[in-house]
Each structure stands twice: as C-alpha cells, then as structure tokens.
Amino acid sequence: MAIADKKNDRFKEDYSRKKVKFEIFGEELIEKIVNSSGNSGRVYLPPEWIGKIVKVVKC
C-alpha cells in the first residue's frame, strides 16, 4: 500500500448520522429555522449578539 493510500484511509471511516450529546454553557438560547439565502442558509440573531461568539448545533 502506498503512503498516499494510507493517508486517505483515515478519511474513509463510516461516519453515520448518529446523534451525539453536547453540553454547552451559555447565557441565552434561541431556537430558529434556517432560511435559504442564495447557495447557503441564514439565521437572523438579535443585534445585541453582534461581536459575540455563538455556536450552532444541527438537531
């Protein structure tokens, strides 16, 4: 097996769509539906959140 093949083997793992648990500590939670925006998606957040760090988890 060539070296390049060995490097690519680690990307061939079967990543199924199993649910995982995340534990997140924060100040506020907003649940929204993602809207279409061109070739991407968009979620509008409050202006008070500008400059803050946010994390997005797909359920």
Rank of each mutant, 00 (worst) to 15 (best):
7 K>N: 06
26 G>V: 06
5 D>I: 07
3 I>W: 11
46 P>V: 02
7 K>T: 05
32 K>T: 08
46 P>W: 00
10 R>C: 01
52 K>T: 09
52 K>G: 01
51 G>I: 04
20 V>F: 08
15 Y>A: 08
7 K>C: 03
19 K>N: 10
59 C>K: 12
33 I>H: 05
28 E>A: 09
55 K>F: 05
19 K>A: 11
48 E>T: 12
58 K>P: 00
20 V>Q: 08
36 S>Q: 15
2 A>K: 15
29 L>W: 03
11 F>V: 04
30 I>K: 11
32 K>D: 11
46 P>S: 05
36 S>D: 13
41 G>V: 09
38 G>I: 00
27 E>T: 13
29 L>K: 09
2 A>G: 15
43 V>W: 01
10 R>V: 03
26 G>C: 09
18 K>R: 11
24 I>W: 09
4 A>C: 01
57 V>H: 02
53 I>W: 02
1 M>A: 11
25 F>C: 03
15 Y>K: 14
21 K>V: 15
47 P>A: 01
56 V>I: 15
48 E>R: 04
7 K>E: 11
36 S>Y: 00
26 G>L: 10
27 E>R: 11
53 I>M: 02
13 E>R: 13
35 N>I: 12
24 I>Y: 09
5 D>S: 14
26 G>K: 05
29 L>M: 06
19 K>V: 04
50 I>W: 01
37 S>N: 05
29 L>H: 02
31 E>D: 10
9 D>F: 12
21 K>Y: 04
58 K>D: 01
44 Y>I: 04
23 E>W: 04
15 Y>L: 14
17 R>N: 14
38 G>H: 00
41 G>C: 10
19 K>T: 07
2 A>C: 10
59 C>L: 13
8 N>L: 15
55 K>A: 06
4 A>G: 02
37 S>F: 15
39 N>C: 02
56 V>D: 05
9 D>P: 00
25 F>Y: 12
16 S>H: 12
9 D>W: 12
5 D>K: 14
56 V>R: 04
14 D>M: 09
31 E>K: 14
2 A>T: 14
37 S>Q: 05
48 E>Y: 02
5 D>H: 13
35 N>E: 15
4 A>D: 13
42 R>A: 05
5 D>M: 07
29 L>F: 03
1 M>V: 09
3 I>G: 10
35 N>M: 14
36 S>E: 13
23 E>I: 15
1 M>D: 01
43 V>I: 15
21 K>M: 07
23 E>M: 02
56 V>T: 12
49 W>D: 07
38 G>T: 00
9 D>R: 14
24 I>M: 10
14 D>F: 06
56 V>Y: 12
54 V>T: 12
2 A>D: 13
9 D>T: 11
32 K>P: 00
26 G>N: 05
23 E>D: 15
28 E>I: 07
58 K>L: 08
34 V>H: 03
43 V>S: 07
46 P>I: 01
26 G>W: 03
31 E>C: 03
45 L>D: 01
7 K>A: 15
27 E>H: 10
4 A>F: 07
38 G>N: 03
16 S>K: 14
24 I>T: 11
2 A>I: 06
42 R>I: 00
